[in-house]
């Protein structure tokens, strides 16, 4: 194996190894969704595809934005933009835990030397109206993945249930590369002058976006964008309604995009500290209502299994 492809030598090698592993399990390997999201779960390949009866398997990297976690590039572990690797299998196969453990072996974790544990951690996303039961997966005391059996998404029962695996890529890479600071990660697996680190790629972005998230984002504009996204979602949901019995909803995916937008705008407003504790609940509620409506619309499309 070249250093570039070695999951223990480069960040991209880790991604390639996970993609290869899950491709072998019949997953479609997708690219990141081209919108700002807080977690890989927001990708319609997970949120919407986990609804309805159709079997589905996908794996992808998703850049995830958590405006509040920005630390101006000063914290060795915290980032406002980081990568999640997501695998979703519907219905959840009986050997999913085993597959997960084998995926760790595929990225260079020797299972005879490490202590892998499944520790209770039930997952809930109030903005997506979603919850599931599962674990945080520990490797030698470190949480490296989240493992969830979705029970509900967008307020709808999952039938059948999907299994979702989310790997925190930076943390895993730091572990397998033996690095203490995320910015020291080797990104491309080269040495010397050819070496490009995670810091080379992202440090400046962390600094600039931290400024934006905490100081410069125009809150009046953000509030307006939130309202616009919400209104557009409502408009699309209504406009896409089938005209006759037996027809499909025509705009479930574009409507869901607006829901994603609203969710991210809420996160930005939250980071700017302009949403009070009581208002917070009502914003979460508004996004959830959009997610629910989009989920319901999706079930009336071909992808959602409608006849």
């Amino acid at each position: 194996m070249t250093a570039t492809a070695d999951p223990t030598r480069s960040f991209q090698g880790l991604i390639l190894a996970l993609q290869g592993f899950w491709a072998e399990q019949g997953c479609v390997v997708l690219q990141p969704y081209d919108m700002e999201v807080g977690a890989g779960t927001f990708h319609p390949a997970t949120t919407l595809r986990s609804l309805g009866p159709k079997p589905w398997r996908a794996a992808y990297v998703q850049p995830s934005r958590r405006p509040k976690d920005g630390r101006y590039g000063e914290n060795p572990n915290r980032l406002q933009h980081y990568y999640q690797f997501q695998a979703i299998l519907k219905p959840s196969p009986p050997d999913l835990q085993d597959l997960y453990v084998r995926s760790l072996a595929a990225i260079g974790i020797d299972l005879s030397l490490h202590d892998i544990r499944f520790v209770e951690d039930d997952w809930e996303s109030p903005t997506l109206g979603a919850w599931g039961l599962g674990w945080e997966c520990w490797c030698d005391g470190m949480e490296v993945s989240q493992f969830t059996y979705f029970q509900q998404v967008a307020g709808l029962e999952c039938a059948p249930v999907s299994g979702e695996l989310t790997y925190g890529l930076e943390r895993l890479a730091m572990y397998v590369q033996g690095v203490e600071n995320v910015y020291d990660l080797n990104f491309n697996g080269r040495d010397g002058i050819e070496r490009i680190s995670y810091g080379d790629v992202f440090k400046q972005a962390e600094q600039e976006y931290s400024r934006f998230n905490f100081e410069y984002a125009d809150t009046a504009l953000l509030f307006q964008h939130f309202k616009d996204a919400e209104a557009e979602a409502r408009h699309l949901l209504e406009a896409g309604e089938p005209e006759a019995e037996g027809e499909h909803h025509k705009l479930a995916l574009p409507a869901y995009d607006q829901c994603i937008k609203a969710s991210h705008l809420f996160n930005l407003l939250d980071a700017r500290g302009v949403i009070s504790v009581t208002e917070r609940q009502s914003y979460i509620f508004r996004v959830r209502e959009l997610a629910k409506a989009c989920g319901a619309a999706w079930l009336r499309t071909a992808g959602g299994g409608a006849a």
Partner: peptide, 22 residues
């Protein structure tokens, strides 16, 4: 707290357990 899982989980009478029963 209990859950459904796997291929049979779309049936209304699906078995529920704390985590998948093997």
């Amino acid at each position: 707290k209990s859950m459904r899982w796997g291929a049979g989980s779309d049936r209304p009478d699906a078995l529920r357990w704390v985590r998948p029963l093997q």
